[in-house]
């Protein structure tokens, strides 16, 4: 047997989340009251449980100061509301990952800053696309489509890809693209310098701002005013150009902006 002291310590450490998360009744009640106060009948319908069960759960939550009864309606207290908001964040973080499990599970995600891993809920409505054997460059073509209509781009570029650079230069020369910021490593910068065309149109171009960082870059992140895209490396260190996560909501952009600012410094 694990000794009593160890057991008590463990119980103490995790008791708060256990109380909330392991009771389906308690967590469902809290979530049901999140949007607006509910009366008993509404709660009975919400949870499809008999009154006695619901009342028992409500009593427990009242004792913990998470719920209060005002006239005939039950509502969350301030504490209850703070807790519910964070519980929903947890659920959404979890489901944002589950919506694109293959994308996250296939790749090296150690490059994503800790703080942003805790805010995956911002990506809950993002989706990934995959290149198929019949359309090997599906992801790449989609990427070119996305950047083609942008006036401004911010990119973390972990690879030296002539294909990508050529398209970017074309957009700059057409004057469609007015400003681009590229976060790259010293290694990539060196490679760009060696290529005469790239040096001229990227390094010696007022519309291009190069930010050279010492960090190891293992993510290809792009964002503009209306989209963000992300491609990653496989766990074995190779770049994967076949899967790309695309997001267009303001939350998706917020996530991308924050990742970018961590790397840009």
């Amino acid at each position: 047997m694990t000794n009593l002291q160890t057991k008590n310590q463990l119980n103490e450490e995790y008791k708060n989340i256990k109380y909330i998360l392991t009771s389906t009744m308690r967590s469902k009640l809290i979530l049901a009251m999140y949007e607006s106060p509910r009366n008993l009948e509404e709660l009975r319908n919400d949870l499809s449980k008999p009154s006695a069960t619901i009342l028992h759960g409500l009593k427990e939550l009242e004792t913990e100061n998470l719920v209060k009864k005002v006239q005939k309606k039950y509502q969350l207290t301030s504490n209850g509301f703070l807790l519910a908001t964070n519980m929903i964040k947890l659920i959404e973080n979890w489901s944002a990952i589950n919506n694109n499990t293959d994308f996250w599970d296939n790749h090296d995600i150690t490059c994503i800053p800790k703080e942003l891993l805790k805010n995956m809920h911002l990506l809950k409505d993002a989706n990934y696309i995959t290149s198929t054997t019949s359309d090997l460059s599906n992801a790449f073509n989609k990427y070119i489509d996305l950047i083609s209509n942008s006036k401004e781009l911010k990119i973390i570029m972990p690879i030296y890809s002539e294909n990508h650079f050529r398209h970017i230069i074309e957009l700059l020369n057409n004057n469609k693209l007015k400003y681009i910021e590229l976060v790259i490593s010293e290694e990539i910068l060196k490679a760009i310098k060696i290529n005469g065309t790239f040096r001229k149109y990227l390094l010696e171009n007022k519309k291009v701002k190069i930010i050279c960082v010492k960090k190891n870059l293992k993510l290809f992140l792009t964002y503009s005013y209306d989209f963000m895209s992300l491609t990653l490396f496989f766990k074995d260190g190779h770049y994967d150009d076949s899967q790309m996560l695309i997001g267009k909501s303001s939350n998706n952009l917020k996530w991308a902006t924050e990742v970018y600012s961590v790397y840009r410094g």
Binding site: L31, D46, L90
Partner: peptide, 13 residues
């Protein structure tokens, strides 16, 4: 109406 938030089994597990 119950909202779409639900604790999944893995969180509870």
């Amino acid at each position: 109406m119950i909202n779409s938030y639900d604790l999944n089994n893995e969180i509870q597990f």
